[in-house]
Nucleic acid binder design. Structure first.
Length: 114
DNA sequence: CTGATGACGGCGC
DNA sequence: TGCGCCGCCATCA
């Protein structure tokens, strides 16, 4: 039976997946959704992050499949996320995570800080 | 119920 | 690489 602090199993799993991302590493929405047992629910992950009220949640480690920040360049969220990522040692290239062309799989690149 | 929107993803050009 | 279109899902008007 679900705990009272868990509004829904899906949301709880998504939050867990996000929290499972170690500092200095990043993951895509799709990867998080997949790890949460919700393949194809990347948008749901995005919605949950936007509605989350946990300041300790490393939402800034979640990027788009391209390795880019989901927020529009120049917006508050963008600058804040970029700042947090760089603060954790994540190298950003024009608001975008450096993706090794060697790896065809973005997941490997995103989950591997190199 | 229908249509529009969004912190998305994949494919095509 | 950049841009656009479409698909998918959940919420809102």
């Amino acid at each position: 039976m679900p705990a009272a602090d868990c509004p829904s199993t899906a949301e709880c799993r998504i939050l867990a997946a996000v929290r499972a991302v170690p500092a200095g590493q990043v993951a895509s929405y799709g990867a998080i959704a997949r790890r949460a047992g919700l393949p194809g629910r990347a948008r749901l992950v995005a919605r949950v992050l936007g509605r989350n009220d946990d300041p300790a949640l490393p939402w800034h480690r979640i990027l788009r499949s391209d390795g880019r920040i989901a927020f529009p360049a120049g917006s508050k969220g963008f600058s804040e996320q970029a700042r947090r990522l760089q603060d954790e040692g994540v190298v950003l290239h024009n608001g975008r995570v450096r993706l090794p062309a060697d790896e065809g799989t973005l997941d490997a690149a995103l989950w591997g800080p190199c």
